[in-house]
Computed example of a mutant assay.
Amino acid sequence: MDTSTTITHDEHRDDEASKLGMWLFIFTELLLFAGLFIVYGVYRYENQEAFHSAGKELSVPIGTINTVILLISSATIAMASSAIRFKNKKLTIRLLVVTLLMALIFMVNKYFEWTGKIEHGYLPGTDTLMNMEQGKVLFYGLYFFMTGLHALHIIVGVILITIVVIRVNKNTLSDENPVLLDNAGLYWHLVDLIWIFLFPLFYLIA
């Protein structure tokens, strides 16, 4: 009974459609952030001095550390995709757990960075920020929105990778059906790519 159910499930699984769906999703996400980058570019061009001044308030070391963290996490999830194909379940899980750990460290760093900016009154809508020049208001508005949207993508990625870990551990995801892990890897690389653009735009602007 269970065997026939499994066979039927495998027969109806469309790996190519799943991968195509993920690529289409990634394309739409890139369009979304491309639009935001264009908005950023326009506002920066119109408020160059204010953006330059506001950029000095951000911590380049923290931004750099978070960049390295995401690069490491992209490498570990890519290695996990290879490990599953070599039927190395333990290594796959370990690499995915390292990826999750890197994501957690990134979010902790981001939490403290956001907290510091909020305490200084840079959160959009606060009286302190609204009393500053328009360029800084725009800079921090974009900073919180774009990095916040990126953080939301990280949270979604963490949930997806956690599901992958659970399925690998239960042997419902293996070298015979690694597409979910591959898609999780593609999504995580998207998260990394977005940050690669956010980092210089906000942290290196000054």
Score class of each variant (00 low, 15 high):
113 E>S: 13
60 V>L: 09
99 T>A: 00
116 G>T: 02
50 A>L: 04
122 Y>E: 11
101 L>G: 07
107 M>C: 04
70 L>S: 03
120 H>L: 01
91 L>M: 15
121 G>W: 02
105 I>T: 10
55 G>E: 04
89 K>R: 15
65 I>K: 04
138 L>F: 07
119 E>T: 06
102 M>W: 03
142 L>E: 08
163 I>V: 13
166 I>V: 12
74 S>M: 02
150 H>Y: 15
109 N>G: 13
56 K>A: 10
52 H>D: 10
133 E>P: 12
126 T>C: 02
100 L>E: 08
52 H>F: 15
101 L>T: 12
170 K>M: 04
54 A>R: 11
116 G>H: 01
126 T>I: 00
164 V>A: 00
145 F>D: 08
70 L>I: 01
83 A>L: 06
78 A>G: 13
158 V>Y: 15
119 E>M: 05
149 L>N: 09
125 G>V: 11
154 I>V: 14
74 S>V: 01
163 I>G: 09
127 D>S: 14
138 L>Q: 08
163 I>N: 10
154 I>A: 00
93 I>P: 08
64 T>I: 12
49 E>H: 09
66 N>D: 10
68 V>E: 03
167 R>A: 13
138 L>Y: 06
120 H>F: 06
139 F>S: 03
92 T>K: 04
119 E>V: 04
119 E>L: 09
88 N>T: 13
114 W>S: 08
132 M>F: 03
137 V>C: 06
50 A>M: 11
152 L>T: 15
108 V>P: 05
140 Y>E: 14
128 T>A: 11
109 N>Q: 03
81 S>Q: 08
150 H>L: 06
111 Y>A: 11
56 K>Q: 06
92 T>F: 02
65 I>F: 09
145 F>C: 09
141 G>D: 10
113 E>K: 03
72 I>V: 13
80 A>S: 06
111 Y>E: 07
108 V>C: 11
121 G>T: 12
90 K>S: 15
